[in-house]
Design a protein around this nucleic acid. Sequence first.
DNA 1: TTCGCGCTTGACGTTTACGTCAACGGAAGT
DNA 2: ACTTCCGTTGACGTAAACGTCAAGCGCGAA
Lengths: 147, 147
Amino acid sequence: MKTYSISELAAEFGITPRAIRFYEDEELIKPTRHGQSRIYSPRDRVRLALILRGKRVGFSLIEIKEMLDLYDINDGQVTQLAVTVRKFSERISLLERQRADIEHALEELRTARARIEVLLSEKDPHHKAEEPHGRLIGFSVNSGVHD
Amino acid sequence: MKTYSISELAAEFGITPRAIRFYEDEELIKPTRHGQSRIYSPRDRVRLALILRGKRVGFSLIEIKEMLDLYDINDGQVTQLAVTVRKFSERISLLERQRADIEHALEELRTARARIEVLLSEKDPHHKAEEPHGRLIGFSVNSGVHD
DNA sequence: TTCGCGCTTGACGTTTACGTCAACGGAAGT
DNA sequence: ACTTCCGTTGACGTAAACGTCAAGCGCGAA
């Protein structure tokens, strides 16, 4: 079975060895050892990928640990399934809101960019542009205020 | 024109006055004053909403400030439009990746929840469940490792 | 054997985004 | 006049997620 050194993984994922060791301190991964050196299995590598993805979607390391533990738990007996379901449901609705936020932000950024590009194309190939007078981007007054 | 007090806005957005003052320290909002007290305009309120949405999608306060400044800049002369476009494009692709990450996470959470619910329904109404032996959720080995 | 390289474990520093007092000020009700 | 709010400005504390040394170990090449 293939193994990895800490710096290999660090390079592959674009992080530092320090970060990986930190994840170990926080008990998110437990590589084996060869003497003193850490040896990472493919499974460790997958966990690392999951950790990073978790981070990208805004989870804290503690939350990520909890979720990884939930994955692992079911290797043995099934514990507190109801709690697990509740947690997952909470996560899901949180993520759905976040996705909606992102879509809003994307929309605004895209239209803003489009307007700016119009300005640029008016300036560059021909010569002048005088029209745009007020602000470029109107705030959408109802943007994100909770219900 | 309607105005708001700091605690009004704090209550409306579910944050503390301290947080709002902090945003002012960091120059993300500049309310007017009546004596010592801060007076917030509808525009300030919108900015606050944008700040919070920015946070929800993972921007730092500094990044949010930059973006708000970009919105404002165009009230006067048009500065460094090309730079603006580039920044916006970067943001957009970053957000798109983040959205993809979220959709991955949502998928996994939903299927995991579904499987757990099956286990629960087998346990509760009738009596036993013996089959589930290995782990519940298989890691999708290629999950999020960058290209 | 000595060099350099990669790895190790502390230990302390740093940034972000506020929380948490402390001490004070002005307006409003009784 | 006194208390009660709501607001203010410091100043210090805190949690998360590492960064940044320092000092040392083991191992293969020269």
